[in-house]
């Protein structure tokens, strides 16, 4: 199924997108036990862009995000329906190895969660378990590149053996980003990565996200519309488990087609 058709299905007929879609969700439903959390979501995520998922809390945006690298598998009683493809491969097929999928689709969490190990080991862990670096020299290189890309190298290069938890909150979050990009994924999922940070650290991360877009496809869940407007090229608005509106960020914020989107971005609820 083509991207254009995808977009038609999600009620976005007019604008053809020039970029290739990296992740395509078709009729995604999610149940937590008896409760349905997502209703037939159809969404295509273009390559090398930042796609923001916004909506009031409990709207299913994080649930959708966690479908993309199957982090929902961990939750008891969670069932995912529909078809979700990454690079054209259905990731919910039975012969898909979750571990390999997650090496390609990395994730950054709401609260910075570095391992209680050294900064170096935090970064090196992923390449090590995926067998991506052999020998100390190669690993040093991977660690340095990742830290540089995450903009943390200058702050951390002299304290690589210190525990990751000794860094400040913003630094910890950048460490987590560095950890995610160390395994060289195609897609990075970010689940409200700045919600636990102060404004300065937040600005730093937002800048970083913009830089990372060149190499990675980024999907970010955020509760802040300003942030969505600042960092993303495309925005999808979720409400009560339904994908209400989706499109170019500018268009969503200036000219939303759905009334609920309008109400949300003008601050009438949420």
């Amino acid at each position: 199924m083509s991207v254009a058709e995808q977009l038609e299905n999600s009620g976005q007929p007019e604008k053809a997108v020039e970029r290739k879609s990296k992740v395509i969700g078709k009729d995604i439903t999610v149940h937590y036990g008896e409760k349905q959390a997502l209703f037939d979501v159809n969404l295509a995520i273009p390559e090398h862009q930042v796609t923001a998922l916004i909506g009031p809390s409990g709207c299913g945006k994080s649930t959708f995000l966690r479908c993309i690298n199957r982090m929902n598998d961990v939750i008891d009683g969670c069932r995912v329906g529909g078809e979700l493809t990454v690079d054209g491969v259905d990731i919910y097929r039975s012969n898909i190895d979750v571990v390999e999928l997650r090496a390609r689709v990395g994730m950054v969490f709401q609260k910075p969660n570095p391992f209680p190990k050294s900064i170096y080991d935090n970064i090196a862990y992923g390449p090590r378990i995926h067998g991506q670096a052999s020998g100390r020299g190669e690993m040093d290189e991977v660690v340095e590149t990742s830290l540089r890309r995450a903009g943390l190298w200058d702050e951390a290069k002299d304290r690589l053996e210190e525990p990751g938890t000794s860094l400040s909150g913003g630094q910890q979050q950048r460490l987590c980003i560095a950890r995610a990009i160390a395994v060289n994924p195609d897609v990075i999922l970010m689940d409200e990565p700045c919600s636990a940070l102060d404004p300065i650290a937040t600005a730093r991360i937002e800048e970083l996200i913009d830089e990372l877009r060149e190499r990675f496809t980024i999907v970010i869940v955020t509760h802040s519309m300003q942030q969505a407007a600042r960092v993303s090229q495309r925005t999808a608005f979720f409400h009560l488990g339904v994908l209400v509106d989706e499109g170019e960020t500018d268009q969503i914020f200036t000219n939303p087609k759905d009334e609920r989107t309008q109400d949300y971005i003008t601050g009438r609820f949420g």
Binding site: M71, E100, R102, G106, M107, F109, F115, G126, H130, V183
Partner: peptide
């Protein structure tokens, strides 16, 4: 969060 972090990088 430690489990999530580890699962998240595969």
């Amino acid at each position: 969060s430690i489990r999530e972090a580890a699962l998240g990088i595969g």
